[in-house]
Nucleic acid binder design. Sequence first.
RNA 1: GCGAGAGUGGCGAAACUGGCAGACGCGCUGGAUUUAGGUUCCAGUGCCGCAAGGCGUGCGGGUUCGACUCCCGCCUCUCGCACCA
Length: 935
Amino acid sequence: MPRYQPSRIEPKWQDWWAARGTFASARLPTGRKAYILDMFPYPSGDGLHVGHPEGYTATDIVTRFERMRGTSVMHPMGFDAFGLPAEEYAIRTGTPPRESTERNIATFTRQLRMLGFSYDWDRVLATTDPGYVRWTQWIFLVLFDTWFDPVQGKGRPIAELPIPPEVAGEGEPAVARYRDAHRLAYQSEAPVNWCPALGTVLANEEVIGGVSERGGHPVVRLPLRQWMLRITAYADRLERELEGLDWPASIKKLQCDWIGRSTGAEVDFLILTAGAPAETIRNAFEQWKRDRAETGFPKKPGDDVLRVYTTRPDTLYGVTCMVVAPEHPLVDILTSPAQRNEITAYRDLAARKSDLDRTDLARGKTGVFTGSHVVHPLTGRPIPVWVADYVLATYGTGAIMSVPAHDDRDHEFARTFGLEVVTVVEPADGSAVPAGELFAGDGRAVASGPYTGLTTREFIVQVAADLAAAGLGRPAVNYKLRDWLFSRQRFWGEPFPILHEIDADGNPTGMIRAVDASELPVNLPELTDFRPGDTPDPPLSRSGPEWLYVERDGRRYRRETNTMPQWAGSCWYYLRFLDPKNEDRFLDPGIEQAWMPVDLYIGGAEHAVLHLLYSRFWHKVLFDRGHVSHPEPFGKLVNQGMILGEMEFTGYRSGKGGWVSAEQRGAEDVSAKVPADQVEKQGEHFVLRDAPKIRVESRAYKMSKSRGNVVNPDQVVRDFGADSLRLYEMFMGPLEATKPWSTAGVSGVRGFLDRCWRLVVDERADDLCLAPQVCDDPPTDEHLREINRTIDKVTRDIQSLSFNTAIARMMEFVNFCTPLERRPRAILEPFVTILAPFAPHLAEELWELLGRTAPVSLAAWPSVEEKWLKDDTVEIPVQIQGKLRGRVVMPADADAEAMKAAAAADPRIAEQLAGKEIVKVVAVPGRLVNFVVKG
RNA sequence: GCGAGAGUGGCGAAACUGGCAGACGCGCUGGAUUUAGGUUCCAGUGCCGCAAGGCGUGCGGGUUCGACUCCCGCCUCUCGCACCA
């Protein structure tokens, strides 16, 4: 009764590999190396879902393949274990996060082992390990110790920061403050996204449409002291150095857009004293221009001017109003006494508005006139200044020149408040845009003084130069990317290795110092109460004094009580895998040089921007500081597609209980799942079998607990085996595609593995033994053609990650072998070898049965004998007028003339060509013949 | 609204660089084995048609001897982004 029993052989081989350390990676590679990495999982309480094994199986196949080809492989796994869910679970149940995290990691580890992935488990790490946290904190200290030198375009030690003499003259505290203001890790009192429900501040990236990404809770803006990382300093390099990476173009573009580089100009507008006579204004303006011509454009604008950033300086003559953000520092100065109440009310409202109100729903423009004017630097005309929240304080200068004729936001604003629309650009093709209408494209300047007639491009270059010469403006570059808000008011994260000096009364002096690297890690204190408060005061501040207060060099300090975000640990885990037990440094330089960069990185597209951008940023800082040898961490990146739930048919019932056709359903009709056997296809749509007038929707949905369509890998392994799960996920379709789950499909590949088993094993025997068909006969030419073609196809398909077609080819091979009365080992053995990366447990078992003692996992990948890939004769399709009319067998190497002759000689073709004039014959050697005829 | 990707049998899909559309799997039909079901094995299976033949890769055009593949214009779906001046 030796049937294929995955439940018997899979644990057997997992134990075998583990006991012998079959998949341990060497400290250093010998010869060719391949660092093949999965995005490590967050160990949630739900365990693995079927999405995880998709990418993990893909990398495992490549790893096993490379290993069998003699490549030194690095293939580690770990856990991204800090983060909110563990903490929320802790709050709910009173379990310390470390306990639940460890339990979850144990579950994940069991499940990953159950799937037979060939990780080097000696390298496993969790971001929460004290030995890992230590080096995460150490990297933070590197960031803290680094400033970005714009001249060299790289990060340098803070000790090398030039101190301006006037700062040095003010004494040591001023120098310290100056340094602190230039570090890549710095504190800021910026408005942040405070989420009362989660009790934490969130990064801009964690706020989606005004609500928290996790949980969908409202978010309000609040000024708070925060740790920031100066990622904007690296914006330029993060964008430019994407170019050389072997990443999907779409991911590169996403990162590019996120960084959002734009070029334009900054322009200063002189602020007018309210109510001054025209003459005074003119004089002040002329005086200001004379001053500027002399002093040039100041680095920072004074209180007397409003500075704007624009990408379209060519529309300067169309400016009809200025708009500043409600948070703009000059709003107070600009507000006239008459407008003060209104402006104050508007600013309060804007401050209380969540991002949701400001962006998503309330699309309509709001704003208030300040009562002030500025002078147009080119025309000298007064321009009114407004406050409106469609202008963002955090982008550019927080103020814009409004050009209603050529910017749709300004156009909407002007229309809302009845402001003037002045056209200064016309389409280059001469087509007319009606007066007062919007034209946002490039074109030719009109009504623009000396610039009239220039193209948009010429104008921008010219006016930027003129403004710069006059000291009124300068070319400028802006990025959408903001500095990275790096602190969280949470318990379950890495503590910052930072001390705040306090005076005798316990109040902070504003001086900070880094914890010495030798004292790392700063461990989390023991807390019984993890709950966030109603205020943004972090849980760590409730820690006992023995953790909170420390003394160094005779001064008293209070520890930083914010913690790092979950991203911190995932920013550098790929480095620690290479040297996970090093107690002296975060990574040995020799090991780093030998293994980096990562050769293949597979994971979900949801990390397209954040994780990958943050990692690249940290990596570049480490590179600048000489800790790693490559500027980029991940050479080739692939995103696996999402696996959806099984296809579902949904019908709709009206309140009265009758069916409603899907396209006619109303809001009150309720949906109902319809079993697949009650549905049939009619034309474009599916309809009810019993009521063909009723259309039903057919769709696969994202797996979710609430929908109840989640597939559990444990269940699949129990029902079909790990090899079947692996193979099915690879057979479903292209790795990158989104595809629906199908349990019938799993049983299909299980059938294939059953046939593989029976190819080698005698299923009728009482004991496990070889099938009687297995023999030592020398293989025939046909056998050799089959096996060589299979090896060839599988080899090429693994390299292009086309696992679905590789599996299809192996199925064809098994279909070829199954009817054979005699199956030579000479073709079975190479087949088992190439099956091994896909279905490793089954392959090991068959390999052992075939009499091998060394594991197939370490066997040599079979080579292809080229001569078996070519056919002597081929069947060539013959077309007339591009339509298939017959097939002719001819030698594979027949030239075009021979092919034409052979095709024309075919009786069937000859008959159809009879009486027709042949205009042209196309013959492609080895492919086809096509007759073009007339009549 | 902007951007990206996709649309091929009943279903998941395949098709190298413009050259036989539908490999492989599921499902379905028939047959053999079996007391029977299941399993296994064999054969068939794009649609219409008795057949000859015709029609077929979301829709409409175009280029070409030849188009799933290239170009233009639409439609639908999925996923991102969303006042960044």
